[in-house]
Simulated scan of single mutants.
Amino acid sequence: MMRGYRPTPVSNSTLSFCGSDNSSAYKVDNGLLNNGCFLDALGVVPHVFLLFSTFPILFIGWGSQSSKVHIHHSTWLHFPGHNFRWLLTVVLLFVLVCEIAEGIVSDGFNQSRHLHLYMPAGLGMLAAITSIIYYHNIETSNFPKLLIALLIYWTLAFITKTIKFVKYDDHGIGLMQLRFCITGLLALLYGLLLGVEVNVVLRRRYMWFPCPTEVKPPDDLQDLGVRFLQPFVNLLSKSTYWWMNTFITSAHKRPIDLKTIGKLPISMRALTNFQRLRKAFDAQAVQ
């Protein structure tokens, strides 16, 4: 009855971070940093730190503190480097997807499952998504001191990826290897995001400075009649017009009028544009 049945070898189904088909993967006789599996485990540390440090804040609801400034909109200011941060995060997510795919393909050539080839990248992707959600909530609440978690995260991630990149080079893994290129790109991206975070610290002066920079809400967002929020939402919402979902849904249910549409922001009104045009015209006329 059981003729033709071949049981799957235990090694193929055993889950192990460094695999179960190579006992030398757990040896660190040549130094911790010369062990590839240890470097991958070290790369997990920043992601775990960010997830454990930001999830409680997100769940507790620090991001909903925009109500303290009595503004009816969901966002009202952008920290320095806002758009650049969003662009870097999108690129980071793409590179992490490539790293996950490369790890899964590489794992297919092993006899047992090597989680270290793709699990750190998966955690990195989850951490990247969490970082941008966390940033959006902190930006919304205008509480930049909580960005210290992101500053630490980018620093740790940049250091661990740089160490791994250098060790790849030391062991002769070069540009012909995809993992070398991906690691170098990740080190660059984490370094750029660290630079963005340092720029926020220097310009908002929320740490190590006696007098933080106070930022007041734009006048348009304190006007309940202003409904056109395109200049004030985050880059993702601005590029997809996600902020208009409520307006579009209500327009499908009932006819809309001018009161529902609301007023334009001051910078987009006809009088403002006329004054700008008049100023430019007068300056050109003088020349």
Score class of each variant (00 low, 15 high):
Gly191Arg: 06
Gln275Leu: 15
Gly63Val: 03
Arg3Ala: 11
Gly174Met: 10
Arg276Gly: 11
Arg204Ala: 06
Pro212Ile: 01
Trp86Thr: 13
Arg205Lys: 15
Pro7Asn: 02
Asn22Arg: 08
Leu96Phe: 06
Phe247Trp: 07
Ser239Trp: 13
Asp223Gln: 05
Phe38Gln: 04
Trp242Asn: 08
Asn22Gly: 01
Gln65His: 10
Leu126Glu: 01
Ile266Cys: 08
Ile173Val: 15
Ala121Asn: 03
Tyr134Met: 05
Ala157Met: 04
Met125Asn: 02
Tyr153Ile: 06
Leu51Trp: 00
Lys167Ile: 11
His171Gly: 01
Tyr241Arg: 14
Ile261Phe: 08
Val105Gln: 13
Glu139Phe: 00
Gly19Ile: 05
Ile163Trp: 00
Ala251His: 05
Leu32Lys: 00
Ala285His: 08
Ser24Tyr: 02
Thr89Tyr: 00
Phe38Ala: 14
Val226Gly: 00
Ile71Thr: 11
Asn34Ser: 11
Thr260Gln: 12
Asn273Trp: 13
Thr89Glu: 03
His171Cys: 04
Ala270Pro: 00
Ile100Leu: 10
Glu139Met: 10
Pro210Glu: 11
Gly172Lys: 03
Lys263Asp: 09
Phe274Thr: 11
Leu229Glu: 01
Lys259Pro: 01
Ile57His: 04
Thr54Phe: 00
Met2Lys: 08
Phe55Thr: 14
Met1Asp: 11
Ala25Lys: 07
Val69Lys: 14
Leu93Met: 15
Leu175Gln: 06
Thr89Leu: 04
Asp220Tyr: 04
Ala101Trp: 06
Leu42Gly: 07
Val10Met: 11
Thr249Lys: 13
Val97Lys: 03
Leu277Pro: 01
Leu221Met: 09
Ile71Phe: 05
Trp154Asp: 07
Ala280Lys: 15
Leu178His: 04
Arg6His: 08
Phe209Cys: 11
Thr8Cys: 13
Pro210His: 02
Trp76Cys: 10
Gln177Phe: 04
Gly195Arg: 02
His72Gln: 13
Ser16Asn: 12
Arg179Met: 11
Leu175Arg: 03
Pro56Cys: 11
Gly63Glu: 09
Phe228Pro: 02
Pro212Gln: 08
Thr183Pro: 02
Ala280Gln: 10
His116Trp: 07
Leu185Pro: 05
Lys238Cys: 06
Ser239Arg: 10
Phe79Leu: 10
Met125Ile: 01
Arg113Ile: 15
Tyr190Val: 05
Tyr168Ser: 04
Asn83Cys: 07
Ile138Gly: 00
Arg6Val: 10
Gly191Val: 04
Leu50Ile: 07
Ser250Gln: 15
Gln222His: 13
Ile159Glu: 13
Met176Trp: 08
Phe209Arg: 02
Leu147Arg: 03
Thr272Asp: 14
Phe232Pro: 07
Tyr153Gly: 04
Ala285Ser: 12
Gln284Val: 12
Ala128Leu: 08
Met207Val: 12
Val215Ile: 10
Val95Thr: 09
Val28Glu: 11
Gln65Lys: 09
Leu87His: 06
Thr260Glu: 14
Asn137Ala: 11
Thr260Pro: 00
Val233Gln: 06
Leu185Ile: 13
Leu188Tyr: 03
Leu115Lys: 02
Leu58Phe: 02
Gly184Val: 08
Ile129Phe: 05
Leu236Met: 09
Leu264Ile: 00
Leu271Arg: 14
Phe143Asp: 09
